[in-house]
Design a protein around this nucleic acid. Structure first.
Lengths: 241, 241
DNA sequence: CTAATGCTACGATAGCGAGCGAAGCATCGC
DNA sequence: GCGATGCTTCGCTCGCTATCGTAGCATTAG
């Protein structure tokens, strides 16, 4: 069947180290220029251009031209979801002979709190998910998750546009959310429409702030208070650094 | 970070046409011998051996030695899930210039009804999912799905071990199920623990039967009746061929 | 207009890896 | 025991592609 060839094509595109680096850099949901992507991948602009053209042609990336810059972003949430699942499989593999090779300071910040395409991940994401489950706001399982009525009320109370959230769900009567297995914590956190709304709102309200040009985020003092008092989340001191 | 390299490694393994063919053949959840896999991939036994060793080493496959045969299967449901999402992205890509190239008779059977690792897919899978949603037995959204109390009762009524299903869910109070976007129908069908139980039970009760050595399944006369009368599913005549 | 920046197109190189033939190692049937 | 089958290891070839240098095109700054 033709599906076989296209499947291999997509996987092969994600399977090159340079392209994988670019895709990872785009996992924060923002759009980056070709030069920036060449930088994170450690290759020249010419090579990056070729890679980007191929990934765009295959539907993995979308491009937006702005002046002499070309902004590339992941084409769809489906692409981000695909990368999540590949990461999940990859995380079960011990890097063999280089166990704790790369735990630099930047890596530490990523493990503490980061964005995963459109939602929060890392220790922060897991802590928030745990707190919401403990409070009865959400239920998470290996096959999916739901936001309870209490959870819906909670989100409205902290200022999230619940109507928009209700409109975004499709058929089901209850608001569903998606668990996303964290590659660093090996625990599920909130993804899907609920996770995206929570992340957007946290950034807008300045509960968290992006760190320079990475996927890492930092919990602000205000966010620290909100997460503890409103969510009841147990954020160890390590989650802020 | 080291994650980048392992990510690329996993994706690259899935990105070779021969390996992709083998992985697809294993998507029915069964274990196949190295020779069989070499056959479906269209390569010699030597080459297949190399591929299988690498995929096993990377944690994509698990091997079981039985006499002089070596049975290979997908190492985990996570690997199957990863392949689902890659297929989902691949299905959004028009094969460009070869639109309707490969719609052979075998392909037609696959589109009608097939297994997708551990659950039913194709027009049959979608029809059953639609019927269960229409009957109020399940709710499916883009971020997840749940089995209602009525649905739980329904599954028990048709002979599925509901207690086992309840035990398999993890933390949540409700039974969750996972929607799996069908690559041929572009519609969600039932996956996860619920979908797996339904598929296993359908095979045991001879409602469906596997066709030779493919992922395609055939609806038996008995199944035809059960699916129409019990599920209320609208199976067009095309779903049986 | 001119120079600089961002990106792309083309051509050439080099290295990886998919593929197979030959040989070797296990296991089964007899 | 012997041959046959299933699979793996080794060595080799060949094709694909990632990479970069050079050149060229678009856009902006001055």
């Amino acid at each position: 069947m033709a599906t076989n060839a296209t499947f291999a094509r997509i996987a092969a595109l994600a399977g090159d180290p340079a392209r994988a680096g670019m895709l990872h850099a785009l996992m924060d949901g923002r759009a980056l220029t070709a030069s920036e992507l060449a930088g994170v991948a450690g290759i020249t602009a010419q090579t990056a251009s070729s890679h980007l053209a191929r990934m765009t042609d295959a539907g993995l990336l979308a491009v937006e031209k702005q002046g002499r810059h070309r902004y590339h972003r992941l084409a769809s949430p489906e692409v981000a979801h695909m990368m999540e699942t590949i990461m999940q499989v990859a995380s079960t593999l011990q890097p063999s002979s280089q166990r704790r090779l790369t735990v630099g300071p930047r890596d530490a910040a990523l493990r503490a709190a980061r964005t995963c395409y459109d939602h929060l991940a890392g220790r922060l994401g897991v802590a928030l998910a745990d707190a919401m489950v403990a409070a009865g706001y959400a239920e998470l399982g290996s096959d999916g998750g739901i936001l309870t009525d209490a959870g819906l009320g909670f989100l409205g109370r902290i200022g999230i546009d619940v109507d928009d959230l209700l409109a975004r769900r499709k058929r089901p009567a209850r608001v569903l959310c998606r668990p996303c297995l964290d590659w660093s914590e090996r625990r599920p956190h909130l993804a899907g429409a609920v996770g995206a709304a929570l992340c957007t709102h946290s950034l807008e309200k300045r509960w968290v702030r992006r760190l320079n040009h990475t996927r890492a985020v930092e919990v602000t003092p205000k966010g620290w208070r909100v997460f503890r008092e409103e969510f009841g989340a147990e954020l160890g001191s390590s989650a802020s650094s």
